[in-house]
């Protein structure tokens, strides 16, 4: 089955991973900007990173027939450096017209601090001024519930934000309902230890019906599995769920959400 991984960090993966993903049915992916494992020291560090996301990775993906899209921001972890964050936010418009850019992301909170919230609001303002989609990172572990509620408060507190133009990622059992009930799209991240297994993700699909719901691997430089979405497909089939529902979650829903960006020029396989 063709599928789309809507959240994967291919800058951290080898070319062999592109080959494996292609063989497993991945036809497109979107890659949000994230933390590199260390704090970058200058706006030029981010400018080079955005060149990698908008130029290098699309070419690497295309060698394997995968269409690569991306999102730009300074992540919540580095938002503690407010001065640098503002320089990066001011620089982002240089890249917004690149053909594979879908919007601003993954923005959000990490430890739910005042500086993180300040920079989050400034990213949202940028997205609204440039009519961009938004991809949200919700915090991990004990910070997730509090941080998700805070993020939803900020989004719902801005009258310019349309919930169905925002994808809230890393939802789990205690956050998914509020995200969907408020009209946002929700992404489940299949990630060892800190997020969600394919089995629990399928439980959530069964309980919510799969409307406005996506699944991703978030494959990155940490313990993660870039082929986690095929694992989800396998678990759904094992439970006897309809192919139409599987396709909705891993293919139709990403296309419907991403199509809200005029730069989503996805070509279906003939």
């Amino acid at each position: 089955m063709d599928y789309i991984d809507p959240h994967i960090h291919m800058v951290s993966r080898t070319t062999d991973d592109y080959a494996t993903l292609a063989r497993m049915g991945c036809v497109a992916m979107s890659e949000p900007a994230f933390w590199a494992g260390y704090d970058r020291g200058s706006v030029d560090g981010f400018r080079d990173y955005f060149r990698q996301l908008t130029d290098t990775e699309p070419k690497r993906a295309a060698q394997y027939g995968i269409q690569h899209f991306t999102w730009l921001c300074i992540n919540a972890k580095e938002a503690e450096n407010v001065a640098l964050s503002r320089e990066v936010i001011a620089m982002i418009p240089e890249f917004l017209d690149c053909p594979n850019v879908l919007g601003i992301g993954e923005i959000g909170l990490n430890k739910n601090t005042p500086n993180e919230a300040t920079i989050f609001l400034e990213h949202v303002d940028l997205a609204m001024k440039f009519e961009q989609l938004i991809l949200i990172h919700t915090p991990h572990l004990e910070d997730k519930y509090q941080g998700t509620r805070m993020i939803l408060d900020m989004l719902c507190g801005d009258s310019r934000v349309t919930p169905d133009r925002v994808l809230v990622d890393h939802v789990e059992e205690h956050t998914i309902r509020e995200v969907l009930d408020r009209g946002f799209w929700a992404g489940m991240t299949l990630y060892p230890v800190t997020k969600c297994t394919p089995e629990r993700a399928v439980d959530m699909i069964e309980q919510t019906g799969g409307e406005r719901l996506l699944a991703n691997s978030a494959g990155d430089w940490g313990p993660s599995k870039p082929t986690a979405v095929p694992d989800l497909i396998f678990e759904m089939r094992r439970r006897g769920l309809p192919e139409s529902l599987i396709r909705k979650v891993v293919y139709d829903n990403p296309i419907e959400f991403f199509s809200k960006s005029k730069q989503f020029t996805f070509q279906r396989r003939a």
Binding site: N112, L141, E142, D143, K144, Y145, Q146, R149, M150, D153, E172, E173, H174, R200, D203
Partner: peptide
Amino acid sequence: ATELQHLFSREYKS
């Protein structure tokens, strides 16, 4: 599962 998640979560204050 939801109750366990809340047990392991920091409190949200509106």
